[in-house]
Amino acid sequence: MKATVCFSLNGEKQVVEVDPSRTLLDVIRTDLSLTGTKKGCGDGDCGGCTVLIDGVPYNSCLVLIAKVEGKEVTTIEGLEKNGQMHPIQEAFVNHGAIQCGFCTPGMIMSAKYILDKNPKPTENEIRQGISGNLCRCTGYQKIVEAIGTLAGKEV
């Protein structure tokens, strides 16, 4: 069985014809070659595959591809504009929020949602907002600080 799914991916229209038992993560990584979104567990337990759907974070490993019909999907590749990193990406680089980098794309997508929803998040709100993104390297603090530097700024 194949299903045709139309959706917007990082602002571009996509039409894919795929087996509907596949996940959004699998399709964007394999069929659409956007490998920035990472698979850490496949069970929704690590947040490595976090993408935004209509602006809201989801574990793309748990989203069946057919569910994104008509939706706007944003992946890590959708944040930089004209070769310029998004302010959140810059903050992560400049504040030591990245080590191995494998959780980073998912973490940044969660950070984007935190700041989109609430331009001045508190430390606890930031920690709550990234509580579904496991990081084994940083101890989270520099990630929290990096996001915190953007509080009250235009992002």
């Binding site: 947040g47 974070p57 748990l62 949602y113 709550q128 509580s131 579904g132």
Partner: peptide, 9 residues
């Protein structure tokens, strides 16, 4: 329940 991402789904 779970995490922010799981709660959204």
């Amino acid at each position: 329940l779970g995490s922010p991402q799981v709660r959204n789904l």
